[in-house]
Design a protein around this nucleic acid. Structure first.
Lengths: 197, 197
DNA sequence: GTCTATATAATGATAGAC
DNA sequence: GTCTATCATTATATAGAC
């Protein structure tokens, strides 16, 4: 228990972990450009120099703290039957819980020329592509894109612009129509058009 | 014709105009944070100091160059019958023409704490509210929000992330389904649900 | 009307002490 | 492992010459 080697290692890992959590928090709140390494270090209660030591650079920290979480795994791991319900519920009916939302970070960081391409690539390989595979059927990719873009717009409005529904009735109306749209896209329903025999 | 007073005035206006056009171009390409007054001045062929002289500050320039154009006037001035067609055509079928798109500027600038609130406010009063009024009928505001957010997501994907459709078939599939969605939202159609008698 | 030169402030990164 | 002190860069804004 008093092995100095082990203790040094444990402390270092804990420190790096605190930096990671604080990076997620600050990147979420301010985006890549707006976040400063000073604020992240202050939040973690460590010195700025440790960020460079443990993660190389601000960009390296961003890659470890944000990119791996930009996925829909959480939604695609459960049965697809009620996927529309879970998506509509999460992004319309549920109040955004404070903390770390990697998609919010994406929307707030996408214009930076260094992280923009990384975010685009991670979004494609970890979210859109898996969603299209999970959907299957005709035009799977097109349907995945429409789902992803509709959700992105809602996240933008509700979580970035902070313009939630102005009444319960409005929220219900949005929820109801969104659910119908997502259902049609997920089940490959050609609403109001010719059906396959 | 050689009135020095008039000539000074004309030149000043032309210079301010060139600054405005270049500001739109650079804000479009890099967003508010990424754009520098140096680059804007260089593009316009004038000295940086003139930006402060004519527009007070970078923020003042942004207000004049971007905020007034954040509207859907262009779409709402024509008959609403084919609004869905015109929107789907513009944002899915037509290649984004280079130049100034105020909605692209919004997506690239929204995380800045100084311009974010201005953009949010302009978007609401000049785009979402007028759209809701033009739609009319039940849940007009909810329908306007779904239209606006779906389009925002598509602009994000096609024009910011630069991920257009990967084939003509994919583009057609997106176009067809988007058109059906917009049509239902614009005409207040409750697809797959009980109809009013 | 326009430009030169500079003031001021913030950032990410690093060398080296403890 | 962690911190102090500092460097180099880059940004907006301004005072004053032409």
């Amino acid at each position: 228990m008093s092995d100095p080697e082990a203790e040094r290692k444990r402390d270092a890992e804990a420190t790096a972990g605190r930096i990671l959590v604080c990076a997620q928090k600050v990147f979420h709140e301010k985006g890549y450009d707006g976040a400063t390494t000073r604020e992240i270090a202050e939040c973690a209660g460590v010195n700025i120099a440790l960020i460079a030591r443990y993660f190389g650079s601000k960009l390296g920290l961003f890659e470890k703290a944000v990119l791996p979480y930009l996925s829909l795994e959480r939604f695609l791991n459960e049965p697809i039957d009620d996927l529309a319900d879970r998506l509509a519920d999460t992004y319309v009916n549920t109040a955004p819980k404070p903390g770390f939302d990697p998609f919010v970070v994406l929307l707030r960081s996408i214009s930076n020329p260094e992280v923009g391409p990384l975010l685009t690539n991670a979004l494609e390989t970890q979210a859109v592509d898996p969603l299209a595979r999970a959907l299957g059927g005709g035009d799977a990719r097109a349907r995945a894109i429409l789902i992803a873009t509709q959700l992105a717009g809602l996240i933008l409005r509700f979580r970035i612009l902070q313009r939630g529904p102005e009444s319960d009735a409005e929220r219900d109306a949005i929820h109801q129509r969104l659910l119908r749209y997502l259902d049609a896209l997920i089940s490959d329903d050609h609403v109001q058009s010719a059906r396959s025999p």
